[in-house]
Amino acid sequence: MRTPTGESVLSRAVRIFEAFTPDAPALTVSEISRRTGLHLATASRLVAELVSHGFLARDADRRVRIGVRLWELGTRASPTLSLRDAAMPIMEGVHDVVGNHVQIGVLEGDEVLFLERLTAPGAVINYTRVAGRLPLHASSSGLVLLAHGPVDLQERILTGPLHAYTPHTITTATALRATLAAVRQQGYAYCPGYFHQDALGVAAPVRDSRGGVVAALSVVVPHDDGAASVVPVVRTAARGISRALAAQGAHGPHG
């Protein structure tokens, strides 16, 4: 069914779902209306219908958030399930060793989408969150995925702009191209202070049963002299997840 403007009701519902972000997980109907460009009455009607189906839920203060039913359906059919199942036991082992953040991310559009994350009280600052995204050029996971990604994606990112988050962030195409070549050659990304000056990221590729890079396993640790010691831990763990995926015959989230 289409509206008088020609846009389907489903398209409008998708716009409502996309209004929610990691920074804004709960919204009023008025906020949804502003973020989607939908008339307030239209937004209110669609929200009410989505709530009735469990795809959205209302808090006690009438703010709206993504409903458990949508999570349930998405999780049930998600092609990332095999990746998460293979990764979690190994990530827990890495977490025991490094005592900071351990995470796994996949390529989604021009960003890294993080599927899972383990952390600890007092760990170094980290902007990663589950279902959150980071730019490819400024994160260790992103550099691994970009280094092994399609050529057209690499060229698109190389054309910039490459936003600087700290003085250490890669901001030129020449430096990024050289870094991607180094990541492919050495088998990991090492990013001291790229996203926050106090933090250092290390990431290694996770491969599916056909050898394609489908994810990046990374840790975020303090930016100090001992950070290099986590490199072999991350590389070994990433190979372990790859072997687990191969045993499942899994092809990764996009395969």
Rank of each mutant, 00 (worst) to 15 (best):
Thr3Ala: 08
Thr5Tyr: 01
Gly6Thr: 06
Gly6Cys: 05
Glu7Thr: 10
Val9Glu: 14
Leu10Tyr: 14
Leu10Asn: 14
Ala13Thr: 03
Ala13Gly: 09
Arg15Met: 04
Glu18Pro: 01
Pro22Leu: 12
Asp23Pro: 00
Ala24Pro: 00
Ala24Met: 02
Ala26Gly: 04
Leu27Gly: 06
Thr28Glu: 13
Val29Gly: 06
Ser30His: 10
Ser30Leu: 12
Glu31Met: 00
Glu31Asn: 00
Glu31Gln: 13
Gly37Val: 10
Leu38Trp: 12
Leu38Arg: 14
Ala43Asp: 11
Gly54Phe: 01
Phe55Asp: 07
Phe55His: 05
Leu56Asn: 07
Asp59Thr: 11
Arg63Phe: 00
Val64Ser: 07
Arg65Asp: 00
Gly67Ala: 05
Val68Trp: 01
Leu70Glu: 07
Trp71Asp: 15
Gly74Val: 09
Thr75Cys: 02
Ala77Trp: 11
Ser78His: 12
Leu81Ile: 14
Leu83Thr: 12
Arg84His: 05
Arg84Trp: 00
Pro89Lys: 04
Pro89Arg: 05
Met91Leu: 12
Glu92Phe: 00
Gly93Lys: 15
Asp96Ser: 14
Val97Arg: 15
Val97Asp: 12
Val97Asn: 04
Val97Lys: 11
Val97His: 08
Val98Trp: 06
Val98Arg: 08
Gly99Pro: 04
Asn100Ile: 01
His101Thr: 15
Ile104Thr: 14
Ile104Asn: 11
Val106Phe: 02
Val106Ser: 04
Val106Ile: 15
Val106Met: 04
Glu108Ile: 02
Asp110Trp: 03
Val112Asn: 09
Val112Gln: 09
Leu113Arg: 14
Arg117Asn: 08
Arg117Val: 13
Leu118Phe: 11
Thr119Met: 03
Pro121Trp: 05
Gly122Trp: 02
Ala123Glu: 12
Ala123Gln: 11
Ile125Ala: 13
Asn126Ala: 12
Asn126Phe: 02
Tyr127Pro: 14
Ala131Gln: 13
Pro135Ile: 13
His137Val: 10
Ala138Lys: 01
Ser139Ala: 14
His148Pro: 01
Glu155Cys: 02
Glu155Pro: 00
His163Ser: 11
Thr166Ser: 06
Thr166Val: 08
Pro167Ala: 05
His168Cys: 09
Ile170Met: 03
Thr171Trp: 01
Thr171Asn: 04
Thr172Trp: 01
Ala175Gln: 10
Leu176Arg: 04
Leu176Cys: 03
Leu180Met: 13
Gly187His: 04
Tyr188Ala: 14
Ala189Pro: 06
Ala189Arg: 09
Tyr194Leu: 07
Tyr194Gln: 07
Gln197Asp: 13
Gln197Leu: 10
Asp198Glu: 15
Ala199Leu: 03
Ala199Ser: 15
Gly201Ser: 06
Gly201Met: 05
Ala203Asn: 06
Ala204Phe: 02
Ala204Leu: 03
Val206His: 05
Arg207Val: 09
Arg207Gln: 09
Ser209Glu: 11
Ser209His: 10
Ser209Trp: 00
Ser209Ile: 02
Gly212His: 13
Val214Gln: 11
Val221Thr: 10
Val221Asn: 05
Asp224Pro: 01
Asp225His: 09
Asp225Val: 11
Ala227Asn: 05
Ala227Cys: 04
Ala227Leu: 03
Ala228Cys: 01
Pro232Gln: 12
Pro232Cys: 10
Val233Thr: 11
Val234Asn: 05
Arg235Leu: 01
Arg235Asp: 01
Arg235Glu: 07
Ala237Glu: 04
Arg239Lys: 06
Arg243Ala: 15
Arg243Pro: 00
Leu245Ala: 13
Ala246Gln: 15
Ala246His: 12
Gly255Leu: 07
